[in-house]
Amino acid sequence: MIRLFFLSLLLLVPAAPVLADGPRIEVTQPDFQFGSVFQGEKVEHVFEFRNAGDDPLLIDRVKSSCGCTAVLVSSKELAPGATGEVRATFDSTRFHGNVVKTIYVYTNDPNHKLVQLHLRGNVKEELQLSARSVTLGPVAAGQSVSTRVKLTNKGDQVAAIGPARTTAKEIKVDFPRRLLQPGETADIELTATAGSGKTVVSGYLLIPTDSPRLPELRIPLQLRITKSE
Rank of each mutant, 00 (worst) to 15 (best):
K169C: 01
A52H: 00
L119K: 10
N51W: 03
T185N: 03
K124A: 09
K150S: 13
A15Q: 12
V139K: 00
A131F: 02
S228C: 00
R3G: 08
V201L: 01
F38R: 09
L217V: 12
A160E: 11
R177P: 07
D54M: 06
G40A: 05
V37A: 01
R94S: 14
E216H: 03
H118M: 06
V73W: 00
V73P: 02
K101I: 07
G67E: 11
V13D: 00
S65G: 15
F38Y: 13
H118Q: 15
R148D: 12
K63P: 01
S130L: 03
V139H: 03
R50T: 13
G35W: 09
T89P: 03
P23V: 09
L117W: 01
T191Q: 09
F175K: 05
L57Q: 06
R94K: 14
C66V: 13
G53L: 05
T83C: 05
L114I: 14
K113W: 04
I161A: 04
R165L: 02
Q143Y: 04
T135W: 01
D55W: 08
P176C: 05
F5V: 15
P30R: 11
V173S: 03
I25R: 00
P182L: 07
T147P: 04
S211N: 13
L217W: 06
V173Q: 02
E26H: 07
R213N: 14
Y104E: 13
D31H: 09
A82G: 05
R178S: 10
L10M: 11
A192I: 08
G183F: 04
V13C: 02
G155H: 04
Q181E: 15
E41S: 13
K42T: 15
G142L: 02
K113A: 09
R165N: 11
M1N: 12
G203I: 08
L217Q: 08
P208Q: 02
N98D: 13
G22I: 07
I103F: 01
L223T: 14
D54S: 15
Q157I: 08
R3C: 05
S130V: 08
L205P: 12
V46I: 12
F6N: 11
K172W: 02
T107N: 07
T167A: 03
A159P: 08
S133I: 02
F95S: 14
M1L: 04
L11A: 15
T89V: 15
A15R: 14
Y106G: 08
V43I: 13
T152D: 01
V46L: 04
V149R: 02
A186C: 06
G162K: 03
P14Q: 04
E126R: 15
K76D: 14
G162T: 12
D156Q: 14
T147F: 00
P176H: 03
P212L: 03
D156A: 12
G137P: 12
F47C: 09
E26K: 10
K169H: 08
S75L: 06
D109W: 00
E189L: 05
A159E: 09
H96I: 02
L217T: 15
P215R: 00
E170C: 09
I219L: 09
L119P: 12
L151C: 06
V173I: 06
K124M: 12
P80K: 05
F5I: 13
A168P: 12
